[in-house]
Nucleic acid binder design. Structure first.
Length: 435
RNA sequence: GGAUGGGUGGCAGAGUGGUCGAUUGCAUCGGUCUUGAAAACCGACGGCCCUUAACGGGGUCCGGGGGUUCGAAUCCCUCCCCAUCCGCCA
């Protein structure tokens, strides 16, 4: 959520920055105009209400004093004088509220502004590789590498057919060594990230609307979520642990000494994938349910840029330890998510698909989410509070990491070697093969 | 599911119809004292709106909404949230 004062005082800068998002290339100026118009109307209505209210309060005091002096006639005169104010106040208030609601609604669906070093672009084709972060190169196979689902199904450990009967498309049963591989990956990632300074957390998977508003899945992306009803109310299933982890500091005022606050969680994630019909329909790439180890950092504003680099290091750390080739791209302005001011995607090499696929996304959201959550901190030697900055990143998507391991560690005979780093977790198993 | 209690400033916690945005304590910040620190003492210390070049000034706000009243933090209704006890349950 943007600071209305900032838009008021820096309209031109705001419009220019917003226009860098392709969706607002044309509309940025009129959007700002609409917002500022509502803002002016809201403030006007608020001022009118407050002036009338002040008059009423003044009169009420005077009436009280008159009555105390037994001046019934004087009290009665004043009573008549302010009689009409009640209706006036209600009208004022109604108007003020209407404008405020409209204004908030407009602001709530406005995306974060890309920072200056985000490349301009329309879509994923305009993302720019961070060459210094590249790791490894496509491994050579002396056979045609298979896709993960071919391997998994041949091993008898990846069952889409039965998942289809039980739950439908975009679900899977993992069995035996692949189920264990998934568990091993999750544990391995948590072990690495806690060693990297993140506090392990086991968060709620069902959360309230307010939490979704905080991280900005709501109000705009309601249809991407799964909802569990409870009585008249409802809970949303988290699409990422970013939601409960970031909201950990909602409505808090933190001590500066507590920053940066780093938390991690390994959780299932649920996504409706509305609008993704037909995309990645085969295999485990895009599921309604998958597990992910998430990283969240809460920092002071001055720290967030460095923390973004650090977080990306932490995500890459997993791939490096697993010796999986990958590259990092800076998302262009058109490919960035709603809440982000800058995002790095990490893409792992998938030999079966013969291309890089996203396996992690690390975003700096600046104070955008903090405003929505009212998450602040008190700088040392200051009585005023400031909004924190929030960052989130996958460290990593476990399902997609499993895919990457299968495809990169496959042998000609359809077996899969267990990466060295995972050996301690696999109970002595060094190779995954059909049993 | 049943029964209670409660939501007030960073925190704790008063206030039950009239100069109450609100007593007090703690925390924080500034100052005095001190070689320095602590203690003690003095002072400051919420958001929002209007106004001002700024200092400042004014107004409004006690979970949300509605009602009663000339007047509501205070009374009534309703919604949301939190807590406790009982029942049931992993």
């Amino acid at each position: 959520m943007h600071d209305i004062k900032l838009i008021r005082d820096n309209r031109d800068l705001f419009v220019a920055a917003l226009a860098r998002r392709p969706a607002y290339a044309e509309a940025a100026d009129t959007t700002a105009a609409e917002i500022l118009d509502l803002d002016a109307k809201w403030r006007g209505a608020k001022t009118a209400y407050e002036q009338h209210k002040a008059r009423q309060n003044e009169a009420s005091r005077a009436i009280g004093q008159a009555k105390a002096k037994k001046d019934e006639a004087g009290a009665k005169a004043m009573l008549e004088e302010v009689a009409h104010l009640k209706a006036q106040l209600q009208a004022d208030q109604e108007e003020e509220r209407k404008y405020e609601v409209d204004l908030r609604a407009k602001l709530a669906v406005l995306p974060n502004l890309p920072v200056a070093d985000v490349p301009m672009g329309a879509d994923e084709n305009d993302n720019v590789e961070v060459v210094a972060r590249r790791f490894g190169s496509a491994p050579r196979f002396d056979f045609k590498p298979k896709e993960h689902f071919e391997l998994g199904e041949a091993l008898g450990m990846m069952d889409f057919e039965r998942a289809g009967k039980v739950s439908g498309a975009r679900f899977v049963y993992l069995k035996g060594a692949l189920a264990r591989l998934e568990r091993s990956l999750g544990m391995f990632m948590l072990d690495v990230q806690t060693a990297n300074g993140y506090l392990e957390v086991n968060p709620p998977l069902l959360v309230r609307d307010e939490a979704f508003f905080g991280t900005s899945q709501l109000p705009k992306f309601e249809e991407d979520l799964f909802w569990a009803s409870m009585g008249e109310g409802r809970f949303g299933l988290i699409p990422t642990a970013e939601v409960p982890l970031t909201n950990l500091v909602r409505e808090e005022i933190l001590d500066e000494a507590a920053l940066p606050y780093r938390v991690t969680a390994w959780t299932p994630c649920f996504r409706a994938e509305a609008g993704a019909a037909g995309r990645d329909t085969r295999g485990m790439i895009r599921q309604h349910q998958f597990s992910k180890v998430e990283l969240v950092s809460i920092t002071a504003p001055e720290q967030s840029e460095a923390e973004h680099e650090r977080m990306t290091d932490c995500a890459q750390d997993i791939l490096k330890r697993l010796e999986l080739p990958h590259r990092v791209v800076t998302l262009c302005s058109g490919d960035m998510g709603f809440a982000a001011q800058k995002t790095y995607d990490i893409e792992v090499w998938l030999p079966g698909q013969d291309r890089y696929r996203e396996i992690s996304s690390c975003s700096n959201c600046g104070d955008f989410q903090a405003r929505r959550m009212e998450a602040r901190y008190r700088p040392k030697d200051s009585k005023n509070t400031r909004f924190v900055h929030t960052l989130n990143g996958s460290g990593l998507a476990v399902g997609r990491t499993l895919i990457a391991v299968l495809e990169n560690y496959q042998e000609a005979d359809g077996t899969v070697r267990v990466p060295e780093a995972l050996l301690p977790y696999m109970g002595g198993l060094t190779k995954i093969e059909k049993v």
